[in-house]
Computed example of a mutant assay.
Amino acid sequence: MAQALGAQTIYEIKQALHRCPVQLSRLVIHKTQDYALELVDYKVLVRLNPLCKALYLLFLQHPEGIVLKEMSLYKTELWNIYLQVCRHNDLKSAEKSVAELCNPLSNSIHEKIARIKSSFETLTDKHIAEYYIIAGARGKAKKIALPPNLIVWQ
């Protein structure tokens, strides 16, 4: 196999594998099923808690990206998404969670992004997960790299 890739060392094999085209799955968001996220071509559901799912959906709706320090600008939108994905009985607790996520002095947003990343890396390898996670340079807009034609809202 190494010779077929034109590689001699482990490092060269890894580099060659990263040059291989990646087969990405379509991400289907099932609106009628509490916004279930499914990687249909891999035949797996992405399991996220409601707050992580709401955050993920917010980023899907903003392909241009969001600067994390500006999350407070998206608080109302995030709240509305959260109400759609969560059957929450305690609205005060829910409001507190969303407010904490939008607070630039809190680490909540980074924790949720890390959980989302972990969920995708559990279902795929790290190289493929890079297309599905929320990522970006520090201080710059974070976004999901998945091409828009692979995102399907049903």
Rank of each mutant, 00 (worst) to 15 (best):
A4V: 10
Y82P: 02
K92N: 03
K142S: 13
L45H: 11
A94D: 00
E121P: 05
P21I: 14
P104K: 09
T124D: 03
Q3F: 07
C102R: 01
T9H: 05
R87G: 11
I116C: 02
H18T: 14
N107M: 04
F59Q: 05
L5A: 09
E77K: 11
K75E: 15
K140D: 12
L150C: 05
L17E: 14
R138V: 11
H127G: 08
L48G: 07
F59A: 02
V152R: 09
L105R: 13
N107Y: 01
L17H: 11
D34P: 02
L51V: 02
K117W: 04
E64R: 13
T124W: 02
M71C: 08
A16K: 13
L123G: 01
T9L: 05
R19C: 11
L48C: 09
V98M: 00
E111V: 08
I29M: 08
K53V: 03
S72P: 00
Q15L: 14
R87N: 15
K53S: 05
V46P: 00
I13P: 01
Q8I: 11
C52K: 03
A2F: 13
L27Q: 03
L24F: 05
E121Q: 14
L17Q: 15
V28E: 06
P21E: 15
L57Q: 03
T32Y: 12
R47H: 15
V67N: 11
Q154G: 14
A129T: 07
N89V: 06
H18D: 15
A54K: 03
K69T: 09
L5S: 06
K96C: 02
D34L: 13
L83N: 08
R87D: 14
Q23V: 10
R138C: 06
K75R: 15
I29R: 04
S72D: 10
T122P: 01
Y82H: 07
L57S: 04
T124F: 02
N80R: 11
D34E: 10
L55V: 05
V28N: 01
L57G: 05
L57H: 06
Y74C: 09
M71H: 02
V40L: 11
V46E: 02
K75W: 05
Y11K: 15
I29T: 07
I29F: 04
Q61T: 13
